[in-house]
């Protein structure tokens, strides 16, 4: 009699003690999308680079100071890059006077890039070659397209993994302090 009573009391003590922490761990674990990797670069100065553009000129990150910058890592072999390209073209057309767009090729060469631009349209911004992949590593790029939104002071304010949509572009430009016109 006394034994079954203590068992019953015991059960009510043990169950929440075991179940609650397990539920908490599973809730946190499953509530998180493991494919979303927050960039630790946000809030930090943009990693510097000095790379050769498709036209042969050299562009250094120092030359970009004073204006917000959009750094887009892309490749001609990457379908989502083609998908986001019209958004970038539109963005460059509408905000080109207030924002500098820079493309950096990820695991791609000048010929591939030229083919892509003649097919999908050249927005006129600088596309830089990163043959060693060193700049992509400096930015923590895992695969194109990845786009960094950097404010006028050179601080990284946002990162988009995957294609930039017009909604993403508007939201990110707003965080850079640009007044976004209705499309």
């Amino acid at each position: 009699m006394s034994r079954s009573l203590s068992w019953r009391r015991l059960r009510w003590l043990i169950v929440p003690l075991v179940v609650l922490p397990l539920v908490a761990v599973l809730f946190v674990g499953f509530g998180r999308d493991p494919s979303v990797i927050p960039s630790p670069l946000i809030g930090k100065p943009m990693p510097s680079f000095s790379l050769t553009a498709l036209d042969g000129t050299t562009l250094s990150s120092r030359d970009l100071a004073g204006k917000p910058v959009i750094v887009n890592f892309w490749a001609s072999w990457c379908p989502p890059c083609a998908e986001e390209h019209p958004v970038l073209l539109d963005l460059a057309k509408r905000y080109g006077d207030r924002v500098t767009v820079v493309g950096i090729l990820y695991n791609d060469d000048a010929e591939g890039a030229a083919r892509f631009l003649s097919r999908y349209g050249d927005g006129g911004w600088a596309d830089l070659l990163d043959p060693s992949g060193g700049t992509a590593v400096d930015y923590g790029v895992t695969g194109p397209p990845e786009t960094f939104f950097i404010d006028a002071a050179g601080i990284v304010r946002g990162k988009q993994i995957g294609p930039v949509t017009s909604d993403v572009a508007s939201a990110q430009l707003a965080t850079l302090g640009l007044v976004v016109a209705a499309p």
Partner: peptide
């Protein structure tokens, strides 16, 4: 917590 629960279980079973 789970370890504490297991320890508690053993103590309770013994005292019971």
């Amino acid at each position: 917590l789970i370890g504490a629960a297991a320890a508690g279980l053993i103590v309770w079973l013994r005292s019971a």
